[in-house]
Design a protein around this nucleic acid. Structure first.
Lengths: 190, 190
DNA sequence: GTCTATAGGACGATAGAC
DNA sequence: GTCTATCGTCCTATAGAC
């Protein structure tokens, strides 16, 4: 068999390519979930063929992990920028950040539900991530609550739930506004 | 072509078969989501072949609608049994019912996130359903709150969020207990 | 680092017999 | 109401050239 492989498009540096792959995949998982994701669609979105894509990520599961790693790195970068504040300030900052990137929030909403199944490739990742979030918030809650872990749970639940409502009706629900109302009740002040 | 079709298993009555299909499908969607669901798995779970299954539901989308219809019918039956109570009593009853059927709660958690995408076959169903839930709770909240719709939103968000936490760690999180704690804060009493 | 080519399944759906 | 048989499409992954 003749294999006339002609390279007409420029090749991207590895790091940049991986970033592109992570972003295209994020978008598509938010749209369809991991089980509805196809390697073909990701490859098309990157201007690659499927084997070209597999060269970078190894497998479909590897693709998912690449996305989650990329997201964690971004989050860490963003978190490092802001000085540590009170619980309420931290929550407000988190909400503001989320309000500016609905597609990422949707990605995590879909994966969080899907990954409840024990054999989902991101099951362990989300278990760890959620535990970490709970621990961090509990620590922040200690100065303001006698039952910090319970408060932390309620904060996480409210954020997750309100974000879903916001994603479903972005025109009716303003995330920052509904959060502020909820925070008023949660933290006792008005 | 010879078509040696031998019917060795008994055929179920239509109604019973549809109930069986709805229940098997519920279980599988909870496990994998709609995009991860295969007609083959459903057919196997019902002791049918795929064309046999398609005879009943028409298409994969039809299968999903059959599940949702079945679930609504069950919910209506259950709701009719209990006398209408106060907002807080109604919420507690809802939580108790959900605590007894984690797989159903998981089904809705997965579909609620997946169906945020506008082209998801259950997108309109969930939009309507959520609006309905908001309206009903808002009505119940009017006697106890000056801002009933905001309170209703917070209740729904908290329920959804706490349910996710419960599904992820059933051994650590008791749904009824965490809800009671949250209800205490939400409704002002302790 | 990306390609061509292809293997090898699984998928949803249809046609037509009983 | 359920079957057998089959179609065409899509899927993930591998082998090997450049």
């Amino acid at each position: 068999m003749a294999l006339p492989y002609r390279r007409d498009r420029p090749r991207l540096p590895v790091a940049e390519r991986r970033r592109q792959i992570a972003e295209v995949t994020s978008q598509l998982i938010a749209e369809r979930g991991f089980w509805g994701l196809s390697m073909q669609d990701v490859a098309d979105g990157c201007g690659l063929t499927v084997p070209g894509l597999l060269h970078h990520v190894g497998s479909k599961d590897g693709l998912l992990l690449a996305v989650l790693d990329h997201r964690d790195a971004e989050d860490l970068r963003s978190l490092a920028e802001q000085a540590p504040g009170t619980l309420r300030e931290t929550c407000a900052a988190l909400i503001r950040r989320n309000a500016s990137q609905p597609e990422i929030v949707r990605l995590f909403a879909v994966l969080e539900a899907e990954s409840l199944a024990p054999d989902h490739p991101a099951h362990d990742y989300f278990r760890t991530r959620q535990q970490r979030a709970l621990d961090d918030l509990t620590e922040l809650a200690k100065p303001v609550s006698a039952a910090p872990e319970i408060l932390a749970r309620q904060i996480i639940a409210l954020m997750d739930g309100l974000q879903i409502q916001w994603l479903r009706s972005p025109s009716t629900v303003d995330l920052v506004t509904v959060w502020e109302a909820a925070a008023g009740r949660l933290f006792g002040a008005q």
